[in-house]
Amino acid sequence: MPPVVRRLPAYEPPVGGAVPLPRPRPRPARVPEPDPPSPALDPLRLVGAVLEVLDGRRPARLLRQVAVPGLAVRLGAMVRPRTTRMVRMPRVCHPSRFVAEISATVRREGRVLAVACRVEHRGGRWWFTSFAVLE
């Protein structure tokens, strides 16, 4: 029997009238909810109050209102009559919403010193958890 030639089915896409493939629908981007702002903090007033207690210009009982108990006792033992003045506005860094680290430069008896402290927001107010005058 002689060979039979048959026509093949079309395997090329049509020219000019290509049908676009359906695109996947983009998913909506998840936008995280922003953190609420940190509670109001007045670093100049807080650090200034502790420095006034350490200089003997304010009563030591004030420390119980701004510092955790262990720190208040330790700072109360450091009270001496002297004069300390703030040189620059304190700088504040917020590692988290309820924690702030404060640094300041002060002048005491002719020397310029650094103050470093950490405050935490508890029970509706800011409390010192660490306070150091770096001499």
Rank of each mutant, 00 (worst) to 15 (best):
M1S: 14
P2R: 03
R6Q: 12
L8H: 02
P9A: 13
P9T: 11
Y11C: 04
Y11E: 05
Y11G: 04
Y11H: 01
E12I: 03
E12C: 03
V15R: 06
G16L: 10
G17M: 14
P20M: 11
L21T: 02
P22W: 05
R23F: 00
P24T: 03
A29F: 00
R30S: 05
V31I: 04
P36N: 11
P39N: 13
A40T: 07
L41K: 12
L41D: 15
D42H: 14
P43T: 06
P43V: 02
L44K: 09
L46E: 05
L46A: 02
L51K: 05
L54P: 08
A60R: 15
L63E: 08
Q65L: 09
A67T: 11
V68E: 08
L71G: 01
L71K: 00
A72V: 03
R74E: 13
V79E: 04
V79Y: 03
P81A: 10
P81R: 10
P81L: 06
P81Q: 09
R85C: 02
V87K: 12
H94N: 06
P95Q: 00
R97W: 05
F98C: 08
V99G: 01
T105V: 07
A116T: 08
C117S: 06
R118V: 01
E120Y: 04
G124H: 15
F128M: 04
F128I: 01
L134T: 07
E135P: 13
